[in-house]
Nucleic acid binder design. Structure first.
Lengths: 198, 198
DNA sequence: TTGCAAAAACTAATGTCATTAGTTATTATA
DNA sequence: TATAATAACTAATGACATTAGTTTTTGCAA
């Protein structure tokens, strides 16, 4: 009386997220997952394509959630306010789901159609949030990369305990965003000065 | 006639770096390393405390090299120039040694005395590079964190192929640094305006 | 309602890896 | 020259992932 226990992909992913967030992404193994789900590890192959398949699904799952909280963060906002809330949502997610966040960066298959779609949507979202700065064409895309670099860098270093100094992390983050935004405003000024010269 | 082949720590680290940089940090196993060195994997325990010990040593080795290239980059420079060269040296190192760079962030033991020393020296170096901005006390430390976030974030995302758009990465990086530096200048202006009010 | 095919769980087996214990040969030193 | 430390080795164990093949349940068609 063992087949059809009721295992399914959502259940598996939820258990995997729990392990990732509490013990780290490396601790998400088919063995640990099977034990948590009270199942033998080969059974997982009915739902997921091995460990690498699981990690890919975990990455997509995380990207979906991250995009969702970022989307919620910017609705009805624009300019500095929008970017600040976006940033806050990003680091809050990374703090709440360290393992899942890790998966979004280390586990995804770049070929995966779903991953590409989510990446594209995220870029679009950030572009819209940056509209107030009137960056033209490529400049907007470069700014998206910059903002993403800064958000990921901060989150990643915070997660790994890379910041050793006894200094308030929230203050560091706020100042970092402020500095970046001030820089964006300057870029906007300079661009205007160039287009209306002497 | 097998003992005393001539294996030593530098040789081991060099081989490990080669594997890490070409195949990725995850591929650095005692097995792969032993094969490369033409030795049985238990022999490595005479020089290194297992896989975790190897990774710790790799992290220290990488941090030393990274600090070295950053130090070279800022000598005789100050202000924007110093920060720009520092940033360039950082991403150049990460590009040239992706696996070793990865090790500096994922492998280090935060308790390790050597790691703490190198981290401290790095902070000092960056503080000096930022001296021209006249940031007072904590502000300077927050700025160090910000710069580091941005450098690591960019390097990490670039390495993982996280930037999908067909857009010149060097331009993105230069703009990111420019934006941050412009922001720092603004912070300096505001601080002055505050100290000499109305 | 009955029977059959697909799906989901299982057991058993293989191979890779890290790690430990115990052995042997070499080197350095007393 | 003898001995102790060291560096390599072999053998064995245990954790994993993965595959092959088996059994049981379930859904659907006759």
């Amino acid at each position: 009386m063992s087949p059809r226990i009721g295992l399914d992909l959502p259940t598996i992913l939820q258990a995997a997220v729990e392990i990732a967030d509490t013990r780290g992404l490396e601790e998400v193994t088919l063995a640990s997952l099977a034990q948590k789900l009270d199942v033998r590890s080969p059974s997982l192959y009915n739902h997921v394509n091995g460990l690498s398949g699981l990690r890919s699904k975990l990455a997509v799952y995380g990207l979906e959630q991250l995009l969702h909280v970022m989307t919620q963060a910017v609705v009805g906002r624009s300019g500095d306010d929008a970017v600040r809330e976006l940033g806050k949502a990003y680091v809050t997610f990374a703090r709440a789901h360290p393992g899942l966040y890790d998966a979004t960066l280390r586990a995804p298959d770049p070929q995966d159609e779903e991953v590409r779609r989510l990446a594209g949507e995220t870029v679009d979202l950030v572009i819209r949030a940056l509209q107030a700065y009137e960056l033209k064409d490529d400049a907007a895309l470069h700014a998206v990369r910059g903002l993403r670099s800064l958000l990921h860098g901060f989150s990643s270093l915070e997660q790994r305990g890379g910041f050793g100094l006894p200094l308030d992390l929230d203050v560091s983050f706020r100042l970092l965003l402020d500095t970046f935004l001030a820089g964006l405003h300057e870029m906007k000024r300079w661009a205007k000065a160039e287009s209306k010269p002497t």
